[in-house]
Amino acid sequence: MSEKEPIWPDEMDAGERVRHVALTRTEPRNAGWIADEAAVSRDTAVKYLTRMVEQGDLEVVETRNGDAYKPDSVTQFLGEVRQLAEEHTLDELTRELNAIGNEIDAWKDDYEVESLAALRQTIGRDDLAGDERRERLNVIEEWAYNVEVREAIQLAISLKSSLTTLDADSLSGESSATLPQEG
């Protein structure tokens, strides 16, 4: 028996199911597809999708099959940066940068490459067995993920610093005193 009918946790209502399906897409999907996956009617899916577009969570892409939806990458990225800045200490963020750097260094050694792009090029080598190629493809995916998370952590550190400076200024009442004088 092939499982094409989705099963969902009992506690997830229609809105949560539509939201989860829409926010986990890597390519745009139309309302009918999302409705089938979320086990809701098309009209219900459209109602929630429209709300998510208005809130900036989704972007609409016009396709041959009508409007299609995918996560708004800017909203998603900024949300992640904000969450990293709010939920983690500077020390935690710094230690994660170090862990990412160490893992990338280990991959460079293991595969004798200088960069992610160089590792991608090795996939075309004739001497790689199927298992070796799959392993490298996995590492390529995780390497790209590491790079993406590293960028977000670096921005989160900047955001934390800016917020700390703003907070310190407002607390000490210096913000107005440091403004340039007119005239």
Partner: peptide
């Protein structure tokens, strides 16, 4: 320029894994 470089899939991944963790906590 990370958005153009990596396509933002990593942030989709973090979001999906958050929901998976919430579900597993209820097992």
């Amino acid at each position: 320029m990370v958005l153009l470089l990596a396509g933002g899939r990593g942030f989709t991944r973090r979001d999906g894994l958050r929901r998976l963790k919430e579900r597993i906590e209820n097992i």
